[in-house]
Design a protein around this nucleic acid. Structure first.
Lengths: 252, 252
DNA sequence: CGTCACCTTGACAAAGGTCAATCTAGGTGG
DNA sequence: CCACCTAGATTGACCTTTGTCAAGGTGACG
């Protein structure tokens, strides 16, 4: 099921990879980027639905998504699974555990997925040789903190419709970055997964999507989304009567 | 108001600091820890209520809380302030911005607070000399990611009473680490701040605290908390009928 | 002793969760 | 190729949790 494959001389390497502008090479000069070819010696194919690693597993590598998508989920003491993120091509997973060397979350493929293996031993070694790489890794961790913070902001401060609108726009931006259409895309995850991620039930997600469609903000058919009114969604996130104590204070 | 003070030979340095087991020196051997004395050359006193740094400020240093406490808050596009964390003695702030060199959140003193200044330039230099220090910093970032993830878990998966119970227990654990009582402590923050942090209103927080008191789980008088039934709180977090779709699935 | 910031409590409203009954599309076996 | 099956999505009716608004209460401090 999970297939490992070593790279050979005909393979695509980091310095020629189309994802270079997003993935590890981002921000490195051509010379440094060329040396990254030593970093990835192997790729892994993960079929849809496979648990790729789970919390508690020893971390031996970071993984760059080459194609496909995965979800990351955390389990709490009482057994609830909370999806903490969806990752697409060009994004790196495993950073959260980089220092303890133990994964903190589960990673599950949402579709057939291929990842590039970046062994931590190679990473440590190369980071010493290429300061820019060490810096890049710290930046990736920093980004992960920001991403996580904005998730807290979203869950703590936004109402359901705002969270979902923000989610759709976020996907749009990420797909655009990857060179796909930002206004028309296919959701890789179920309503239940979206709901779990956003702290909502699948019914609420479904109702909101229907409502957005009725209001002309989007068109939706199953998992195919077309964003009709970008500004409308944006306005929804920002203006729509603020949540909780804000209004009172804003008027004071 | 904000007072800087340089350390002199009589000052407490990192290797003799009572917070060594929590703060930067944690996990370093005695020899390396001794070298940390070069790291902190200055402390800053911040009066209660002062905005110490704000999002967008250039980051020139990390700060270790020596005494007092601060809150970290993020502002979103529509102006909502979301508290993303409370920090106490021994904890480090500024990590989220380490690579972009720009703070992403505001830091405000909740009481008179003293922080140790760790200039990033010194940190970079010393990290090269002491690999264990570089590792320690990465680990601190890793911890920040985990902390943030558990916040997402809490906001996304727990109901209000569970969040508040978890909050009280978390504070208890942190105070215990600091050598204070874990069963009796003073909240440094208002009901509104707690509510904001947990994604609730101040009224809900107040009501829940009253309810916990009525149920004999805690005693509360203003900001003085005494935890009477640790297990009761723990049980509340774990068992109390799970949230959302979980039950259905658990039975299936 | 008055003021102010903060907290508590009640009555009510709204958001969102729960349960249940379809609906739909894609996949499978006859 | 069709009929059936199943997982996922939709929708409605209803109920719980939590937010909103408003009216006091409490304690610290000048």
């Amino acid at each position: 099921m999970i297939k490992h494959q070593l790279l050979n001389k005909d393979s695509v390497y980091c310095n020629t990879c189309v994802l270079g502008h997003i993935c590890v090479p981002q921000g490195l000069n051509a010379q440094d980027a060329a040396r990254l070819n030593e970093l990835v010696k192997e790729r892994i194919r993960i079929p849809k639905g496979t648990l790729f690693f789970k919390a508690g597993d020893r971390l031996t590598a970071l993984y760059g998504i080459r194609s496909g998508s995965m979800k990351l989920q955390l389990e709490n003491e009482s057994g609830h699974m909370q999806i903490t993120g969806f990752v697409f091509a060009g994004e790196i997973i495993g950073l959260d555990a980089l220092t303890e060397n133990v994964h903190v979350s589960n990673a599950i493929a949402m579709e057939d997925t291929e990842v590039c293996v970046i062994r931590t031993s190679d990473l440590t070694y190369l980071s010493k040789e290429i300061p820019a790489l060490a810096h890049r890794v710290t930046r990736l961790m920093s980004q992960e903190i920001s991403r996580s913070h904005s998730m807290v902001l979203s869950l703590g401060a936004m109402r359901s419709e705002q969270r979902l609108a923000a989610f759709l726009i976020n996907l749009s931006q990420r797909f655009t970055c990857l060179g796909y259409s930002g206004s028309e895309y296919v959701l890789r995850m179920s309503r239940e997964e979206i709901g779990n991620y956003l702290g909502l039930t699948l019914e609420t997600v479904s109702r909101l999507l229907s409502r957005f469609a009725k209001e002309g903000l989007i068109r939706i058919h199953q998992r195919e989304v077309r964003i009709l009114d970008f500004n409308g969604l944006q306005t929804l996130i920002q203006n729509e009567n603020m949540h909780r104590t804000d209004l009172r204070r804003a008027l004071a």
